[in-house]
Design a protein around this nucleic acid. Structure first.
Lengths: 218, 218
DNA sequence: ATAATAAGTTAGACTAATCTAACATTAGAT
DNA sequence: ATCTAATGTTAGATTAGTCTAACTTATTAT
C-alpha cells in the first residue's frame, strides 16, 4: 500500500502528465512544493516500485500500474467532492481542501457507498471526469468558451481551472455548470465577451475567464 | 497542531484514564500496540507540549489541555460514526474502522456540517456520549443489565464494549439500542438471563453478554 | 563550438516515529 | 527488610520524508 505521501506524488504526476505527457522533475517539485532533491528521491522510490518509468536525466512518465493507482486516488478525490456538494451541502469552492484529505482514507466500502448514494456519478462538481473502479477515465474534449463565435449557444460543462478565487468569482456572477450561454458579442481589442446567461442576465466575461470555461456547443 | 500519531496517543490516554483514572506506561503501550520505549518517548513529547502530567516512574494523567484535545478527537470519531450510520447507511459494526481514519481530518466546517446534518447528536451508534465543541462530556452512568433483577423492565441504551464480534452477535439476535427488555428469569448457576425483547421475542443472554449491555431502568 | 544557464544527481544532515538491548527504579512477597 | 519481578528509562539503530550544498549533465544562445 502506498503511503499518503506516495499517493500525493502519484496524483501530481498523473495530473501533470495529463497536460504535458512527459513530466520534468522540476515540474513535479513545483507542483508538490518540495525541493528538487526530495522529488528526485521519491522518483527513485516510485521507479523501484514499478510505478514510474525513469532513466537518469530523462523525463518521467507513469507506468500503467502507476497510472491506475493515481486514477483511483483521483477517483476517491472527485467522488468525495461530489459527495460533499450533493449530500453535505457544501459549495463547490469549499470541497477541494477536504477532499484532499479524504482521498487518502483506506476503505473500499466507504467509497463504494458514496458512489452508490450519488448514483454512480461520472463528473465532479467542477466538471472533471471521475475515473471508474478500474482507473479508466473517459475524456470528453470540450470546447473553450474563448474559441466560440458570436451568436453561438453553448452549455457550460466544466472548468479548466478550479482555484478558490475563480470559483468564488463565478459564484458572485451566479455562473454554474449546466448553465446555457449565448454569445452576444466579442470585443476585438481584448477578446472579452458579452454573453446572455440562461436567457436572462447579461454578463461581461474577460478572456482570462472565458478561456477557463469549457462548453458544449448546442 | 498535533500529528495523527499524537492524536492517537491522546485518544488512547483519554480512554484509558476514563476507566482507570491514572494510566501506566505499559497500559498505554498495550493499548497503542507499540513498544514501551516508544510509548515512553511519546509521553515525554506530550509532557513537553503541556498535554500530559508526568513525573519519572510515576503514573500518567492528561492535563486539562490534553483532555480537551483528546475529547475533540473523540468527538470527531463519534460524530463520524453516527454520520456513517444515519446518513450513509452503514451498520454499527462497520463504522469504527472508517471513523478511526476520518477522526484525523482537519476541517472544522466538515465536522460542523456533520453535526448539523445529524441535528447535534449526543450519543454515538454504540451509546457512547459525544463530547461537545468545547470537549465537555456529559457522563450518564448507566446500569449494567447483569445487575438488574427479575421482573424489571429496562431500555437498552449503550454498550460497554463495541468489538466487531459483539456487534455482529447482537445483530444476529436482532438486539439494538433503544430496545425495551423485560427480565423474565435469571439462572442462579451462571447468571444467564431469559429476557423478553420489545414484548415479542424471548432471548437467552449469558452473563458475558448481559454485563456488556447498559440499560436505563423503566 | 563552446560557454553560460538550466535541470538533475549525490552526499550528508535533520526530525518523527518506531524498534531492541541494556540499565534503573519501584513494588510486592516472604 | 530485602530480594525478585514488574515496570520504566536510556542508548543507539532504522526508515520515511524532508532539507541545503556541492557537483554533473543537458540545453541554449551567440
Amino acid at each position: 500500500m502506498a503511503s499518503q505521501t506516495e499517493e500525493n506524488y502519484l496524483k501530481s504526476l498523473f495530473l501533470l502528465a495529463d497536460t504535458n505527457g512527459e513530466i520534468s522533475l522540476s515540474d513535479l517539485s513545483k507542483a508538490m512544493e518540495i525541493s528538487i532533491p526530495t522529488a528526485n528521491s521519491m522518483v527513485n522510490k516510485l521507479h523501484t516500485k514499478g510505478l514510474l518509468k525513469y532513466k537518469k536525466y530523462k523525463p518521467l512518465s507513469l507506468t500503467s500500474k502507476g497510472k491506475k493507482e493515481a486514477a483511483l486516488i483521483i477517483r476517491k478525490h472527485r467522488l468525495t467532492e461530489i459527495f460533499l456538494v450533493e449530500v453535505m451541502g457544501f459549495g463547490w469552492e469549499q470541497v477541494h481542501e477536504i477532499a484532499e484529505q479524504i482521498e487518502h482514507i483506506n476503505s473500499s466500502v466507504f467509497f463504494e457507498r458514496m458512489d452508490e448514494l450519488l448514483s454512480f456519478p461520472t463528473i465532479d462538481p467542477h466538471g472533471s471526469p471521475i475515473p471508474d473502479k478500474n482507473g479508466k477515465i473517459v475524456w470528453k474534449s470540450h470546447e473553450n468558451l474563448s474559441n466560440c463565435k458570436v451568436g453561438q449557444k453553448v452549455k457550460l460543462v466544466a472548468l479548466s481551472q478550479s482555484s478558490d478565487e475563480f470559483l468564488k468569482f463565478l459564484n458572485a456572477k451566479n455562473i454554474c455548470l449546466g448553465m446555457k450561454i449565448e454569445i452576444l458579442s466579442i470585443e476585438v481589442f481584448d477578446q472579452s465577451m458579452l454573453v446572455l446567461c440562461e436567457g436572462l442576465r447579461k454578463e461581461h466575461l474577460s478572456f482570462i475567464v472565458s478561456e477557463k470555461l469549457l462548453v458544449e456547443v448546442l
